[in-house]
Design a protein around this nucleic acid. Sequence first.
DNA 1: AAATCAAACTAACAAACGTTAGTTTTGTAT
DNA 2: ATACAAAACTAACGTTTGTTAGTTTGATTT
Lengths: 189, 189
Amino acid sequence: MQTTSRKAEIIAKASQLFKEKGYSAVTMRDIAQAMGIKAASLYNHIEGKQEILSILILDLAKEFTSGMDAILKMKNAPLQKIEKLIELHIDITVNQSEALAALNNDWMHMSEKDVVDFVAMREAYEENFRTIIKEGISQGQLQPRHPEVILFSILSTLRTLYLWYQKRGKLDVNLLKRDMLAVLIRGIV
Amino acid sequence: MQTTSRKAEIIAKASQLFKEKGYSAVTMRDIAQAMGIKAASLYNHIEGKQEILSILILDLAKEFTSGMDAILKMKNAPLQKIEKLIELHIDITVNQSEALAALNNDWMHMSEKDVVDFVAMREAYEENFRTIIKEGISQGQLQPRHPEVILFSILSTLRTLYLWYQKRGKLDVNLLKRDMLAVLIRGIV
DNA sequence: AAATCAAACTAACAAACGTTAGTTTTGTAT
DNA sequence: ATACAAAACTAACGTTTGTTAGTTTGATTT
């Protein structure tokens, strides 16, 4: 019984390389060498380079979308939903830090159709996040700052978490969540 | 009297393309076409593709470094230094949003020597920032959170500001500074 | 033993890449 | 008009790119 298909192995290895150098700078021969095989052999498992990227990005985007959907269904107050969203990002980052690099930096190199789908998903995600923030403000639970500034302050931090989570001594996840929630929500003063 | 050299024009145009697709995905023919000339003509002005990238990134890195140096010389309290740093990032972003993309995403494609210099500058910058934060905590001006979490929450937001500053209706710079200072320092609750 | 099948291989292609060499054009100063 | 320098051009180069075609290997099933 195989636990991981060869295709999944290729995608996993490719995502590591994409994280290091970016999609465009990684060649099929790079990926093959990292797998210990020849470039042509990759095509027994995948359709092409672009397919690797699309699977990587769209699967991850769906994870964010379904996470958001679950949170929207909750009966919690806006601030508690934001806390859940922060935890969602941290959980995904800890388990998928490689794919996050591609999602952040290389989505524009997917096929046109996949780019359209991805951008739609991302805009829907951001719009849901924005709505929660606006509710928080109108209910007096959040400070009356420009919602866009709040949205992107939080999102920027969460989206680039993958860049420094690793090296910083593998902070305990629960400790990380506690401090990030504190900093992002209550500030630093 | 020419106000901008042809070389500077090429670098400026290239940085726009780098921001859209990343350094590796932009070809010399792309840059030439955007300039309305042929690819070979570029070499009358620049040494090669990598030189464009290095000038772009290292010039910007020096701007951050000298900005940091000026702030370190001030006699202000840590919190006020952090406010100055946030304003520094916002000012640079407003004037150099294209080059910031390359600095964030494509620094690893410079020559080995330039990468070493760049990473050294970045680490020095972060170390200075970290020291200010630690002073703020030990003086009781900042909450006693993990300094690394504070550092990267602020830096992540500032570093990706270039991605959304433009489209969001060209927020007035002073308004942006006010709201970002509030969100990053005093939080959202 | 024969057949099957996944997964590797070798060899090669056409296109695109960064770059070089040598030449022509263009504007400015003599 | 002539000379000069800046900046464009055409043509081509050697590599590298993603990908295809056809073949071989090795394990499992019949």
